[in-house]
């Protein structure tokens, strides 16, 4: 991972099975996973994006949607600059729960956090239960960004993350965010180079390691 100008921290929230983890996977790995693997605890992903000529690292925390993990999710709001509040356009109840999620987010996050409302699974138009206009209105009334996505087809996934990043960057330029306060979820990128280890002797198996090295090393 090369160096970057800024680091923006994101959190993805919303009901269980609305596609939070799929959005993250699509954004970071350009993959889609059909099997729903329940997120327990938190998941983590990172990707670079370019905004205004600056390399920006997005560090994204994907959370569990289940009620029983709500207290864990809450502890990740603090220190996030952006949030993707996700619902499933084919399940109205996930839309109905947005108020609670929003309340939770606003209660536990910094007041400047940029929130984008994401109506996911937009590829399933025939099963749609939440009209796009309703989502737009909800977002407008609460001062949120809005987008409909499909983690399956990758439609708008890129935009969901970059639109939010643009907005955060804009706020940063306007001085709304203080990059020196890490509670804002923004950090100025380091001139990072962990460097070579001091005097470490790699005494064994290194030849084998060099010959057989692969990016995805591991023993099993």
């Amino acid at each position: 991972m090369s160096s970057y100008s800024y680091l923006f921290k994101y959190i993805i929230i919303g009901d269980s099975a609305v596609g939070k983890s799929c959005l993250l996977l699509q954004f970071t790995d350009h993959r889609f996973q059909t099997v729903h693997d329940l997120t327990i605890g938190v998941e983590f992903g990172a990707r670079m994006v370019t905004i205004d000529g600056h390399q920006i690292k997005l560090q994204i925390w994907d959370t569990a949607g289940q009620e029983s993990f709500r207290s864990i999710t809450r502890s990740y709001y603090r220190g996030a600059a952006g949030a993707l509040l996700v619902y499933d356009i084919t399940r109205r109840e996930t839309f109905q729960h947005l108020g609670t999620w929003l309340e939770d987010a606003r209660a536990h996050s910094n007041p400047n956090m940029v929130i984008i409302l994401v109506g996911n699974k937009a590829d399933l138009e025939d099963k749609r239960q939440v009209p796009r206009e309703e989502g737009e209105r909800f977002a407008r009334e609460r001062g949120l960004l809005f987008i409909e996505t499909s983690a399956k087809t990758a439609m708008n996934v890129e935009d969901a993350f970059t639109t939010t990043a643009n907005k955060i960057y804009e706020k940063l330029q306007q001085g709304v965010f203080d990059a020196r306060n890490e509670l804002n979820g923004i950090k100025i990128g380091p001139q990072y180079n962990a460097g070579a280890p001091p005097g470490q002797k790699t005494v064994d198996l290194s030849k084998q390691s060099k010959q057989g090295s692969s990016e995805e090393g591991g023993c099993c």
Partner: peptide, 19 residues
């Protein structure tokens, strides 16, 4: 002469796996 932290991390992990 010099490796990045990540390169060495991968290398160490490879050593561990091989050991």
């Amino acid at each position: 002469a010099q490796r990045s932290g990540l390169e060495e991390f991968k290398e160490q992990w490879k050593h561990i796996s091989d050991l």
